[in-house]
Design a protein around this nucleic acid. Structure first.
Lengths: 207, 207
DNA sequence: CTCTGTGAACATCTTCACAGCT
DNA sequence: AGCTGTGAAGATGTTCACAGAG
């Protein structure tokens, strides 16, 4: 398969979110025009995005809401559930552990780890916080494909190594650090302070 | 000034983070090559990014760490502090209110609002949660330039209207919704579930 | 001789515009 | 007639490669 741009994948997720809303409303078909508005883009962009994966629409009619939603779930890899572990049970880690949006999308939090003895043993949304020292041992059982990193920046890279060695293939990083991972392991970083700085730039440069 | 790509602004933030680390270490100059490694990019990209704003380096030598850091702070609009209000004192709102990285960068949380009576009156990191019904009245005093939205998706757009009317010019949105704002108001969205879905796509399509 | 600054070449992403199904 | 699917054109972002300052 040809390489697909991240911006395309991001839009596919937005389309899916909107399609699921429409499914709930019992709507049967939708045009690229309406789908475009929901994601803040253009109808041509919608059609181009979808065309990379096949022809799902009917000319003169539009797309079947349920069929397209199903197809998008497959494309995005949401057909099967993913096992997720959260590393770091601080404020953000705890908030994510209890975030309903994850489970709703098929991301199951199966483990939470922290090195702080005061946090180990607590339960967050039905999952007990384990000692980070037991990470390798527990991952053998849990076999998560994805890890969410909410630890201080200075230990983040070290944890990428440990997680990778334990078989994790995707990491969502919230630490303000540039991380390196071996081939075959995908790392995405979300950096709240950086998002505010981009906003700051925009405000400072308004004419 | 010519329009600057978001990807460029994002990299400038990363360069600044690394430069501040170097400042702490007492290092005086740095080459585009080393700066590139820190942000996961190339030396040509670094020089191009900086060239949009002027010539800050010395050929044969590199860039002065302190001078470049100072210049980047100005460019990013971090010269003066920003007043920030957080709308929504749930898990994520509370976590952000207490996040050290914001204050360190000159983003001051001056107000937190929630509509839940159980949360109003609580204190988070020295700021008392106010009733959302009092938003307009309190914003007249606080005069924040930036708002962080951590509310349910179905009320997010309505709050964009209220905040915009009250003079807020930048919104960082954590609700899973596509928001529309009038000209002159910048909205950025961070969507955790969507980031996991992009990861899911990458894992599902590994060869 | 080193390392910046920058046009030019290249690659990638978006928009246009229209042929062709339904 | 309506709306998709898609090459081609256009816009935007990145890399190359080298002249030239220190």
């Amino acid at each position: 398969m040809k390489h697909i741009a991240e911006s395309t994948v991001r839009r596919l997720s937005l389309y899916l979110r909107f399609l699921e809303e429409l499914e709930g409303q019992g709507r049967e078909t939708i045009s690229s025009e309406v789908l475009a508005d929901s994601g803040g883009t253009t109808s041509a962009q919608v059609r181009k995005d979808l065309s990379f994966f096949g022809s799902f629409g009917k000319r003169g009619l539009g797309y079947s809401v349920t069929a397209l939603a199903k197809r998008l779930r497959e494309i995005l890899g949401l057909g099967q559930p993913w096992q997720v572990v959260i590393i770091g049970a601080g404020k953000i880690g705890a908030a994510l552990a209890q975030y309903r949006g994850f489970r709703a999308r098929g991301f199951h939090v199966v483990g939470i780890f922290d090195s702080d003895p005061a946090k180990v043993g607590r339960t967050l949304d039905g999952v007990t916080v384990s000692d980070l020292a037991q990470l390798e041992r527990e991952l053998k059982q849990l076999k998560p494909q994805i890890a969410v990193l909410t630890v201080p920046a200075d230990v983040a890279q070290e944890l990428v190594q440990r997680l990778t060695k334990a078989g994790v293939r995707g990491i969502l990083n919230f630490a303000p650090a540039t991380l390196h991972a071996p081939d075959g392991v995908t790392v995405r970083s979300v950096n709240m302070a950086l998002e505010l700085e981009i906003l700051s730039y925009a405000l400072a440069h308004e004419r």
